[in-house]
Simulated assay, not measured.
Amino acid sequence: MNTESWEAWSFRTKTGETGLQAENLVGFEVEATDGGIGKIVNGSTDDGSSWIVVDTGPWIFGRLVVLPAGTIDRVDTEDEKVYLDLTKEQVKDSPPPTEEAAAPDQEYRGILGTYYGGIYGPRGGGF
């Protein structure tokens, strides 16, 4: 993972990827580096404020998890899977949503930015 240029709230762009829309990812399976964690149920592609919400099902007792777009390593549109560069434990230990996680507010985004910034390095918390 490249921590020098990591931005929490922006989707990463790779050669050949354009027009990634969080809304089009609803229903996609989400894979951590060590296994599946659930399905995307919501998301946003607002400039500088992009995120997804994952329903973890029984894995962590049906908890919804908000993930900044910068945690997504790649998207496989054919298999409808989103791959993170985080472990299941890192996702499990993330701060729980303050409400229903429909849209993370500025305060919660700051909490998430701090948590994931500790994983990705000193530049990770910015938004």
Rank of each mutant, 00 (worst) to 15 (best):
Q90L: 05
G43P: 09
F28V: 06
T45P: 05
Q21F: 03
Q90I: 06
L67K: 02
D76S: 10
G48F: 01
Y83N: 08
T15E: 14
D76L: 09
I111V: 14
T13S: 12
S94C: 05
T114P: 00
Q21S: 12
T33F: 09
A103D: 14
D79T: 05
I60A: 03
V53F: 06
V26T: 04
I40N: 09
V54S: 06
R12Y: 13
F127K: 01
K81N: 07
T98V: 05
P104Y: 02
V26W: 02
A103L: 08
R12N: 12
G118N: 11
D93L: 13
G27P: 09
F28Q: 07
G43D: 04
M1L: 14
E107D: 13
T71V: 11
S5L: 13
T71Y: 07
T71G: 06
G57P: 04
Y115N: 10
E23F: 11
T18S: 15
G35F: 03
E107C: 03
W51E: 06
G125D: 03
V65D: 00
G125M: 08
E17S: 15
D79M: 09
Q106V: 12
P122L: 10
T114V: 06
K39M: 12
S50E: 14
V65L: 06
V66A: 09
V75M: 06
T13V: 13
T98M: 09
S49N: 14
S50R: 07
G19E: 09
P58Y: 13
P95A: 05
K14L: 15
V53G: 04
D76E: 09
V75W: 03
P97Y: 00
L25V: 13
E4L: 12
Q106C: 04
G121R: 08
F28N: 12
L84M: 03
G35K: 01
R109W: 08
E99T: 11
